[in-house]
Design a protein around this nucleic acid. Sequence first.
DNA 1: AGTTGCTGTAACATAATCGTCACGAAAAAG
DNA 2: CTTTTTCGTGACGATTATGTTACAGCAACT
Lengths: 234, 234
Amino acid sequence: MANRSILIVDDESAIREMIRIGLEMAGFKCMEAADAQDAYGQILDNRPDLILLDWMMPNTSGLELLRRLRRDDVSRNIPVIMLTAKDDEDNRIQGLDVGADDYVTKPFSSRELLARIKAVLRRSADPEDGDAVEVNGLVLDPVSHRVFADSKPIDMGPTEYKLLKFFMTHQERAYSRGQLLDQVWGSNVYVEERTVDVHIRRLRKALATDAQDYGMLIQTVRGTGYRFSAAGLD
Amino acid sequence: MANRSILIVDDESAIREMIRIGLEMAGFKCMEAADAQDAYGQILDNRPDLILLDWMMPNTSGLELLRRLRRDDVSRNIPVIMLTAKDDEDNRIQGLDVGADDYVTKPFSSRELLARIKAVLRRSADPEDGDAVEVNGLVLDPVSHRVFADSKPIDMGPTEYKLLKFFMTHQERAYSRGQLLDQVWGSNVYVEERTVDVHIRRLRKALATDAQDYGMLIQTVRGTGYRFSAAGLD
DNA sequence: AGTTGCTGTAACATAATCGTCACGAAAAAG
DNA sequence: CTTTTTCGTGACGATTATGTTACAGCAACT
């Protein structure tokens, strides 16, 4: 576990302390937040690799915070483990629906918590993240979360960005609309397959600059789906 | 929805009927089972593409059936969507743990049910793969879904692609038009045998590059059908 | 409330592909 | 050499897949 950082969100400082000690012994770097407000700030500033989120908190509830995180592009991919009371089954479901990755019921052993954390981190390991990708003058920079065509910034919506990012990190391969929905939208979202076409169109349009039509990098594979290929520019 | 079959497992025939009607209107083929026993038999016999499983049933519970299915090699990969009562949250978690792919709470709209079904089916389908095949400079790559002649991409329709793929993975053997229809078109379509000729012709044309006429790899076997042979280039 | 930006869906437009036919050329049979 | 069968080929309307546009709902922000 190469020095991953974990944000602990709980209103009781005693609990935070306890968790922190266990995690630091296991080699994680820890941050703490006492409420949703504080947590949100730290998330934007420090980009933790994982968030432990207590469900019962004053002011904004954990649910609210989670919902906000999942809406936001910057934090969408940070895995969240909920901490819930034992008999709080209603909230567990709700939490999983909104996008929590797992839950642990209080009281829990640090051994159990560690196991869950490792499992979730393993799943979300994304080695591709961090480096900019470039194809023939089209650049996508995951850090600044922006796209450039011949050094000029290009504007697009969040979905188009994710779609392009997926394509640029998975070139020369045909994907069905279903696969794209799973990979880009997420596998537990219910959307018509034709929606993919519309976003492909929006992405192509965004990629069509005056100088070069980078939209041609996205090729349609009739009867199958789409493919991103550097050979598209000719 | 290409003729997928769905097994509806529920002890109340009224509910089964209701669901069935909705699904059949959407183009699915339906089967019904009133209890786990019946369901298990039908699953082994008919191999449905998906199972809608009511959680509350007399005798063997849905949970038991699901557990059995997941143990069994034959049924392990058939996706299952649970139907649960609204306040049955405990069971939902349990079901997902045992291996259900999704759950829908009663009462549900047929629109919601359809969306879930499509999403689940989408996931279990697709992933087209395999190694690239090569013959004398003609390359077919199933991953990118493309064909290259001496490294230059070749354009062709979906049917021609499938035809070529079949030929390249079944070389040196003569196939009748009927066999080709079964293998390439699918065994339950009715088209004229001469249609094969036309597609052979289109494929040959596509394979005729300036440098090399790869169309000659496809040989006609008079009175019988066609054969793909690497010896065709001379 | 009004505005803005983004989303998913439906509806329509366009383009690619399909299956069939008709006719002539090429083999095979007589 | 003539007849018969089989195949190659181009054209055509029908069908299907994809491109494109418009719109309504939603959330965030004024």
